[in-house]
Each structure stands twice: as C-alpha cells, then as structure tokens.
Amino acid sequence: MYSANFDYHRAKSLSDAQRLLASNPGAKLLAGGHSLIPLMKLRLASPSAVVDIGRIPELRGISKSGDGIRIGSLTTHAEIAASADVQKSAAALAEAAGLVGDPAVRSRGTIGGNVAHADPASDLPTVLVALDAKIVAIGPKGERTISADGFFTGIMSTTLADDEVITAIVVPALAKEQGSAYVKFSHPASRYAVIGVAASVTSSGGTCSAARVALGGLVPHATRANAVEKALVGGGLDTTAIGTAAAKVGTDLGNEVTGDIFASAEYRTAVAPVYVKRAIAAAAARAGLA
C-alpha cells in the first residue's frame, strides 16, 4: 500500500515540534506510527505533512511524580508493560499495555500516540479513564492537564487541539486497599478490543468505598460504567455483589453498542457483564479482598 504524497519533518525538540506544527497547517504528529501510518497507507488519512516527534528524548520514560507515576508520551507499550512501577501501582495499565496488538506493535507504539489517536477499540484509553489518569499537553497557550475522563469524545476524537502535543500521562498513586485490572476480549484479526473493561476498586474493611469501571471496544469511546460503579460502592466485593453490579452494565451501554461481522452488538451486549464481572473481581483481588 502506498500513501499519498506528504512532507516529512523531524522535530529535534518539543519546541521544534510546536514550531513545525504551527508552520505546517494540516500536519499530523507521528510518534510510533502504528496508528497513523496504516491509515495513510490505506489513504484514509492524507495529511499534507507529518511532524515526526519520535526522537525527542524528553518525551520518553517513566518516573515517579508526586504520589503518582508520570509516563512520557513517547514511552512504548512494551516499556509500560515491563515497568515494575507501573505493574505495582497501576496494574491495569501494565496489563493493558501488554495486550496491545502484538510484540512488534508494542515495541513501537507509544502511549501518547495511542491516546491521541483515540481508536474506540483501543486498550489504553479505557484503562486511563478507570484509573483517573491525567493527560498533559502543551500548546501555543502553554501547558494544560486534562482528565482522561472527558478527554475522549467520540470515534477517534478527543478534546486535544490540533496545535497541542501530548507530553505525558500521569497516573495517580494507589490508595490503601485499592486494586485495578483490565480484561480484554481481543478481535482475532486486529487484536483491538471487542470488549475491554478496566476496573479500579477501593475497599474499606471489606466494603467497596470507591469504584471506577470503564468500557472500551463496544462503545464509540472509552466510557465510565456509572450504573455499575454506583451499584458497587457501599456494597461488598464478594462474587454475588460483583455479579449483581456487573449486570448493570446494560444500563450503561444503552443502544450505542458497536457491532461488526465478527461480533454483533447483541452478542457484545450479552457478554459484556461477564467481562465487567471478571475485571472487577481481578481488581478486588489486587485490593487484597478476594
């Protein structure tokens, strides 16, 4: 497959990237290239210019940040999956990063590119919403921090402006007795999520004191399962309680469930509670409860 013609610019630094973005209207940022390049080769995207930010060292790496973890936007899925810090305090994120695509994709694909691309069947947006992560972006007006919950607005659309560059993802630290998990039903061909569920639960003496559950794959963008969360909080985290809460996902899904030739909307709706249940149970286990 051959893309249409485009101009290529390699940014030497973050400020250089911003300058190139400003001087090339219609340019797209290129990080790992595992989302943008396939679109260009299929000619579903034909940007006039590409600004390659893939070699800006300051955007890469995982570090402790206050109580949480700061993940540079160019950090690859493979690096996130292998990070002991992420595994410890954001288990769901390490899990999800390890399930993205295949080893080649994980070695090149980046968290920033993934989040900016906002494929509805992507894994990381779902997890970031459940973990209450923050997306840090810089633009002509300066830096801003955007809550993941609200950042994703539709199929491949976000609140990021065309002239902004994502610089980092910040995941808050774990509370006491908090655990998180991600479970995924992979499409056998694309390896995108047919259903992806991320859950984060906190217990207080066996009672669920806080819960965030997010859905991906079967909805237009990563979305919180409010009805499930509401049913969990204040109750126990035993199998029955989790099952009852998970069954509420039908309310959250409504009529907007995605279907395709591999898995219909009806089927996805029917089995969604199973994946919700499994995600919550795994998160509860990590919170030290199961």
């Binding site: 295949d102 056998p188 061909a189 591999f262």
Partner: peptide, 26 residues
C-alpha cells in the same frame, strides 16, 4: 475451524479485505 472466513456482501464487496478483519492463526 476457529477463525478464518472471507465474507462478501450481497453486492460482492469483500468485507474481510485486510488482515485487520481476516483472522489468521497466531
């Protein structure tokens, strides 16, 4: 047995036209 199938719609469009839709074993 488990994954592969080429799907055409009634107009003869190949719906499984790429490796993103046509599942080969992994």
């Amino acid at each position: 047995a488990l994954w592969e199938r080429a799907v055409y719609d009634d107009n003869g469009q190949l719906l499984t036209g790429s490796l993103a839709d046509y599942a080969i074993p992994r």
